[in-house]
Simulated scan of single mutants.
Amino acid sequence: MRILILALVITSWSCKAQTETKIEPKLENIAWISGTWHGEAFGGKTEEIWSEPSAGSMMATFKLINNGKVTFYEIEIIREVENSLILQLKHFGSDLKGWETKDETIDFPLKEITPTKVVFEGMTFEKVNDKEMNVYVDIEENGTIETVKFNYIKQ
């Protein structure tokens, strides 16, 4: 009986792996990220606006609002580099003063793309459907990494 259960588990993993076919690291393969997205995280409202791919990149702005006031902003880009993609971002306070130094970015190299996921080291975009996506971000605090889920609805 245990062998049968193990065989069924392995078969189901194998079938799932086959449906998650990896695709080429090209911006047109992740264009589904583009649009205006709204959600909730960190006890507030979130807004993230992604452009369509053009000139080898996509760009985004992010805003977190708590109690009717902006907590912080981000500027993000995904760009094509050496037959792959990289996501880079910078944080800004509500006064638009940068958190990172002038030449510093937070970089997330690409790990893989499937038809419904874009997996960077430390950040994953997951397409739920045409109007919903989840973004998972690994946040390190006091030496511990916590994955925060952002559920977004496209406006």
Rank of each mutant, 00 (worst) to 15 (best):
E28M: 12
A41H: 05
M133F: 01
S54R: 12
N29H: 08
A7H: 08
T105F: 14
I75V: 13
E40M: 05
K117V: 06
E80M: 05
Y73M: 01
G122F: 05
N66G: 00
I30D: 01
K131S: 12
E80V: 04
T46Y: 02
N129P: 04
E28I: 10
G98H: 06
E52F: 09
H91R: 04
S57D: 02
T124Y: 13
V70D: 02
M133C: 03
V119K: 14
T21H: 13
E141S: 10
V148S: 05
L8G: 12
T114D: 03
Y73Q: 09
K26E: 08
E76Q: 13
Y73K: 04
F108N: 01
Y136C: 06
E48G: 02
H38K: 07
F92Q: 03
N151K: 13
I78T: 11
Y73V: 03
E132R: 10
T21G: 03
T36Y: 06
T36A: 03
I65N: 05
E146T: 15
K90G: 11
A41Y: 03
R2E: 08
N151W: 00
T116S: 15
N67W: 10
T71H: 15
D138S: 12
V118R: 06
V81R: 10
L6K: 08
F125R: 02
M58R: 05
E28Y: 06
K63F: 03
K16C: 04
A31P: 02
L96G: 01
E100N: 11
D138H: 12
T114H: 10
A17R: 09
V119P: 04
K127R: 15
D107Y: 07
E80S: 14
T61H: 06
F125W: 09
I75Q: 06
K127I: 04
R2S: 11
E121M: 08
V70K: 02
N83L: 02
K117H: 13
I86W: 00
Q155E: 13
T19L: 15
R2K: 11
S94Y: 09
Q18E: 11
R2P: 00
T61Q: 09
K16W: 15
E112Q: 13
I78P: 09
L89C: 00
I65T: 15
L87K: 12
I139Q: 14
I145H: 11
R2V: 07
Q88K: 14
I86Y: 07
M58H: 04
G43D: 10
E52W: 10
K97G: 09
K63R: 13
K26D: 03
F125H: 14
E52Y: 11
G68D: 11
A55E: 11
S34I: 06
L4C: 01
N67I: 02
T116D: 09
E28D: 15
S54L: 01
G39Q: 00
N66K: 14
K97Y: 13
Q88S: 10
A7M: 07
E52Q: 14
I49R: 05
E74D: 11
E126P: 03
T101D: 15
T105S: 06
E100R: 11
T46G: 02
F72H: 15
L8P: 05
S84K: 01
I30C: 08
F62W: 05
